[in-house]
């Protein structure tokens, strides 16, 4: 490591919108890499870690969460203005998150059931990804994101190179890891063939099917997978639920759930 002056280090900001903070925690969970990270980057704005706030502009902004309020929609423009590079982290920021389930229903109806005075609730009809509002330089998938992929994105940013974040299916990671295919060997419903890799095939390693946390692959063929899942006895209402989780409004998953809903 060269003797870089503190002020020469690229400045990092971490922002939060509608989210559970799990992806920000992934950054704090970097353990072995956290110290080198903190000495390579000036962590200027990261409220989850420190209330000390360094002024912008920032060289790299990591943005967690989706846009769900009019204030969010305003604030993300500010974030973009003060950020040289903007990377979304996690399913909320990249796809709208679990809260995008509101897109399939009437949010005013929810509010009227949940809140005594729903008129105080200023919320948007839909939960939208950051890219629906401002230009995004890179989208890191996952619910939550994967620690190794986060480090990879940050190191790629520091080196000025493309991050190694492949768009292929979870199946590749299963086979590299040596997992048995739970879909074929156990008849366990699994979204792995239509889900982007990144988690290291975590669930199949424990004999569970993939839940699709990282969203659709580069070329998902959900109709073909649905044929298989139906053959395994998955009902249409269950198919709808399978696709409506953290990435429900990602187009291929939306279409897959709507196709199943149409049949239900």
């Amino acid at each position: 490591m060269t003797s870089t002056d503190r002020n020469d280090r690229p400045r990092l900001a971490v922002w939060k919108f509608a989210s559970c903070d799990g992806c920000q925690l992934t950054l704090l969970d970097c353990e072995d890499e956290l110290l080198p990270l903190a000495s390579t980057l000036d962590i200027a704005y990261f409220l989850e870690a420190s209330s000390a706030v360094g002024p912008g502009p920032y060289d790299l902004s990591l943005v967690e969460g989706s846009i769900t309020t009019p204030q969010d929609a305003e604030h993300i423009r500010h974030v973009r203005r003060v950020s040289r590079r903007l990377v979304t982290i996690g399913a909320c920021a990249t796809a709208g998150g679990i809260q995008a389930l509101r897109d399939f229903a009437d949010v005013r109806e929810f509010a009227s059931v949940v809140y005594a005075r729903p008129e105080y609730i200023a919320t948007l009809e839909r939960s939208t990804p950051i890219s629906a509002h401002v230009p995004v330089d890179f989208e890191l998938r996952g619910c939550p994101i994967d620690k190794r992929q986060l480090i990879e994105v940050i190191t790629a940013f520091l080196a000025g190179r493309r991050p190694v974040v492949p768009g292929h299916s979870v199946c590749v990671e299963c086979k590299i890891r040596g997992n048995i295919c739970v879909l074929v060997a156990h008849g366990t419903p699994c979204l792995g063939p239509v889900t982007q890799a990144g988690c290291g095939a975590l669930c199949p390693a424990f004999n569970r099917g993939c839940y699709g946390c990282f969203g659709p692959t580069e070329t998902p063929n959900t109709p073909a997978l649905n044929t298989k899942l139906r053959r395994l006895g998955v009902s249409d209402p269950d198919l709808v639920r399978v696709y409506r989780t953290f990435n429900a409004t990602e187009e291929p998953f939306r279409q897959a759930s709507e196709e199943a809903e149409g049949d239900a």
Partner: peptide, 27 residues
């Protein structure tokens, strides 16, 4: 076809690979 790659991964002759370059945090 799911384009999931399972056929090629289990194939005992499919030999295709890719090359990845990664740096560490310090560069």
């Amino acid at each position: 076809c799911l384009s999931c790659t399972n056929c090629t991964m289990v194939c005992p002759t499919c030999f295709c690979s890719t090359v990845e370059d990664v740096t560490d945090l310090t560069g």
